[in-house]
C-alpha cells in the first residue's frame, strides 16, 4: 500500500509538472518489491533480522521506487523525443534497475542455515563444475572470498555461468555499485552483496567475518536451478513482481 501511494504520488507530481503529456497504462511504472521467501530473522545468526528488514523494506524498496520514477521520466523523454533527457537518465536507470535486479536475485539465493537448500549437496551439478574449475569447494570459497575482500567501495561478488559457444564456464565476477550481471551469455548463479549496509550493523568493519559466515546461508538449490537453467529462468523473479 505504501508503494502504491508513493507511486501514485510521484505520478501525480510528475504529471502536474510535465503537462500536457498524459500517461497511459503503458507508461505506468511496473516494478514492485518482491516478497522475501523467508522471515526477516530466518538467516540469524549469520545475518541479523534488523539488517534484513532494513535491507529489504528500505534499501531495496528505494531502488524499486527510484527505478519506477526514472522510468517515468524516461517514458516522458521518449514521448517528447528528447534524446538529451533520455541519455541523461540512462545511468540512473542502470543504477536503480541494477539495485532491483541484484537484490531480487540475492534474496532468492539465500536460505536459512538449517534448511536443506543451504547445503552444497543441494547443487550436485554445480558442485561438480566448481570442483573441476577450482579444484575443490574449499579453494573456490577462498577465491571468492579474496575477490569479495578485494572490492574497493560498494559492489557485489557473483558466481557467473558464462556460455562460450557450446561450453559453460564458471567465473567469479565482482561488479561495482549496483552494476548487474546482464552481459550476453552470462547467467548469475548467486551473488553476495558487499555494500556496507549488507553487514555493517552486525559486523562493523569486520567484513571478512561476514564473508565467512554468509556461506552458511547460501541457497544451493536456487544456485543449481540457475546453473542448469537459461538466462531467462534466472531472472524470472523480476517478472513475478511487475
Amino acid at each position: 500500500m505504501v508503494l502504491i501511494s508513493l507511486l501514485s504520488t510521484s505520478l501525480r507530481a510528475f504529471a502536474s509538472e510535465q503537462q500536457p503529456f498524459e500517461f497511459g497504462e503503458m507508461a505506468r511504472p511496473p516494478f514492485t518489491l518482491p516478497k522475501l521467501p523467508y522471515a526477516y530473522d530466518a538467516l540469524e545468526p549469520y545475518i541479523s533480522a534488523q539488517i534484513m528488514e532494513l535491507h529489504h523494506s528500505k534499501h531495496h524498496q528505494t531502488y524499486v521506487t527510484s527505478l519506477n520514477d526514472a522510468l517515468l521520466f524516461q517514458a516522458q523523454a521518449v514521448h517528447t523525443t528528447n534524446i538529451v533527457s533520455q541519455v541523461s537518465h540512462q545511468q540512473l536507470i542502470k543504477f536503480h534497475a541494477g539495485g532491483h535486479i541484484n537484490h531480487s536475485l540475492f534474496w532468492e539465493n539465500l536460505a536459512p542455515a538449517s534448511s536443506s537448500e543451504a547445503k552444497s549437496s543441494a547443487a550436485p551439478k554445480l558442485s561438480n563444475q566448481i570442483a573441476s574449475t577450482w579444484g575443490s569447494e574449499e579453494k573456490f570459497r577462498e577465491a571468492f572470498k579474496a575477490a569479495l575482500l578485494g572490492l574497493q567501495g560498494s559492489g557485489w561478488g557473483w558466481l557467473v555461468k558464462v556460455e562460450v559457444g557450446q561450453e559453460q564456464r564458471l567465473s567469479i565476477v565482482t561488479t561495482k555499485d549496483q552494476d548487474p550481471i546482464v552481459g550476453k551469455g552470462e547467467v548469475p548463479v548467486f551473488g553476495i552483496d558487499m555494500w556496507e549496509h549488507a553487514y555493517y550493523l552486525q559486523y562493523l568493519n569486520g567484513k571478512a567475518a561476514y564473508v565467512e559466515n554468509i556461506w552458511n546461508v547460501i541457497n544451493w538449490k536456487t544456485a543449481e536451478e540457475r546453473f542448469i537453467g537459461t538466462r531467462e529462468d534466472a531472472f524470472k523473479i523480476l517478472k513475478a513482481y511487475v
Partner: peptide
C-alpha cells in the same frame, strides 16, 4: 573503476 572487473577481464580473474 579500480578493483572491479570488466567483462573482458573476467575470465583470467578466477
Amino acid at each position: 573503476m579500480n578493483g572491479h572487473t570488466s567483462a573482458e577481464e573476467r575470465a583470467p580473474l578466477q
